[in-house]
Design a protein around this nucleic acid. Structure first.
Lengths: 220, 220, 220, 220
DNA sequence: GATGAATGAGAGTTCATTCAT
DNA sequence: GATGAATGAACTCTCATTCAT
């Protein structure tokens, strides 16, 4: 339904990264620290957008942020943490957007609701395809932290809330976490694939996506 | 419908890789060369499986293959070429498997056919999840070569052939390349996500996947 | 007239080096950086002297400098940059020496002036023949940067100033940039050739060089 | 006076090449071998012209020659030998051309003779600047072999013969090997410098070169 | 807390040369 | 004699991370 739809957990991956610490090194309590973290994250997003994953490195991020590498490492234990934080932040934005959309769906039909969610997803992915793709990439690669998990659950919860609204027209077994997850996965797959190929959403993407979602929800 | 489902083309990506040469550097005419290439590819697969992408480097592959790096570079212009060849090979295997399955489907019902294909996909992905995931990863990242394209078209064609078999029970607009592509994308998304999480396929994966495929095909 | 006589420009050369960045990567602002750069350049000179071009590699230079390769690359974008900086530095030294000598020539006769310059040239080249030859070598190979150009112009200008001093005894067309350039080229050719053969300047080098310079300046 | 003017000896160079064998590995007595050697040398020349020194490697030469690397090494002990042979061959051509020109000079004035030689030199260098420059480069770098030495002596002898023709109008000390050598060095320096800068000889090159040669010969 | 110079393991790639066939 | 597959030392360059100032 949106850019950064993720799996709910992918535990057994990455043999080469034994004990990553994906959490920010310290909670920046103070105003100034908070601002620095923001600056760094913004810079990271810019670098990812402009240079893609291949050109993404901590020195560059620090430089773009106008901060020393040392400072970067003050707030992020390592590169992965930085990426994780970036993903976390995007997930946050995404979860909010989905929750908003779901709220707006109250009273609408199932089809109209799905349409709104489909549009949101397309919108998110196409707003900044390089960035979105890069994050998706990393998301799949990273061991997932608790913060991230919480966002995904929020995302899943929002979708379930949406499904609840229409439980009268849905098969009973469809109002479930797994359904929410599948819908998110399908959405991401279709939207991402198109976004890799064309700079603007093809006209029929919306229709095809809707078909996939509706189909999944209504199939026997 | 299985592991290496790919987009049919993704042209405008990857600003940082101008004109990769993804083809083998020289065709190994002789018996010995042929064997070396095989050895290298096998080693590459093993390394990818064991160390995942992060631990995949040409020196290691050569070492595991029991050949010198020089030999590796005799046959593969660069690291990317090697990965591309690996993908190519998997695509080939996959396309064959799908074509076979589709042939076997003659006479079966739509549901039975989809079930067979779903099982094939699950099978392929779970046979070697790390390897499959890594290749999918790279596939998305690499500029697509003509060889690869051909395999994807073959895959798409096989699916269309399957759809043709059941055109009487499908909406007319469903027998189309885009449909084939969407089915492949959905399949890959659902199977890959589960394969990231569990070592053996969860019991309901088959059902959910079938639901997604049937839903997409039968939705209005 | 001295070691590093160079062409004033050689634009259309070197098909294989598209757009080298020959400038230092970052200006070392701080005291420590400045020292490191100095250390590296000194080490580069030593390596060039001791091992000649064939044994000149960045790892060796870093090792001799007692710094890490990383540090070298912090200040020099690539190997060529390092060499370029070395040349630049020698050119600077040379230009200063020539300018000084020319100043001292005020009041002297043309012959005495040429003698002084000839001696300077011989001196410079024989002070460290391997080093000087290697730099000349590279100078011819490298695409010329603006810094280098400026030094060469300075060198040319100094020679022209010298010619001006004696314009009353010279053909009018001889006080020109091309003359300066030719004198420098001739000087370099004769001195370098001898320096390749003998460890100390042969007794007649001075006379032959003087003959060539005087001849060029006075020929009809 | 022409492209490949060389120093008569440069013994004490190149610390890193202890015991080069610069001679062809075996004298190709047979017709076929002789042809192979020619083919290889021709290929070497082509490669040098097309790819310049940076792209010059034995594998490429063999490939261009349509011969296996193994065969190349049958006739040339190592890469340096190949280059040496190439230089040797050019020297041979050059010596012949100079000898011819000198013969034609019988009866002409000193000025006319020098003009003829200057034109020959310019011609040779500009016929194929990349190739000529690359060879000059290597010539300076290589320890000189006896074959090469002989050509240079021939070259020197031809020039001396020329000087002898005009001994009546020259200072007595000018008819000497050193003079011949200096003339050759000066010629090479001026012509090569211009050839690095412009694709066709500048109009005044001839005049400047003549001035340098005449000046050297007539200066007191 | 911040800085940014320094580190160095490690990755990709080349190419002269050998030697089994 | 010829072939060309194989070798591997050598080299350039990157970048996550540390730590003295």
């Amino acid at each position: 339904m949106m850019r950064a739809i993720t799996h709910f957990n992918y535990s057994h991956s990455l043999p080469l990264m034994p004990r990553l610490q994906l959490n920010a090194r310290k909670q920046p309590n103070q105003r100034r620290s908070q601002a620095t973290v923001e600056t760094i994250l913004a810079a990271a997003a810019r670098v990812l957008t402009k240079h893609s994953l291949a050109g993404f490195n901590t020195n560059r991020v620090a430089e773009v942020a106008g901060v020393s590498v040392g400072s970067l490492y003050q707030y992020f234990a390592n590169k992965e943490s930085l990426v994780a934080a970036l993903i976390d932040r995007e997930q946050e934005r995404l979860a909010l957007a989905v929750e908003d959309t779901v709220k707006d769906c109250a009273g609408k039909s199932l089809g109209d609701g799905l349409l709104a969610l489909a549009r949101l997803a397309i919108d998110q992915q196409y707003r900044n395809p390089t960035f979105a793709a890069a994050l998706d990439h990393e998301e799949r690669r990273l061991p997932i932290g608790s913060r991230l998990r919480r966002h995904e659950e929020r995302l899943g919860a929002a979708v379930i809330a949406f499904l609840m609204m229409h439980r009268s027209v849905l098969p009973a077994d469809r109002v479930a976490p797994d359904t929410a997850r599948d819908l998110l996965l399908i959405t991401r797959a279709l939207v991402e694939a198109d976004a890799q190929e064309t700079a603007t959403p093809p006209r029929d993407l919306e229709r095809r996506l809707l078909r996939a979602l509706t189909g999944y929800l209504t199939a026997p």
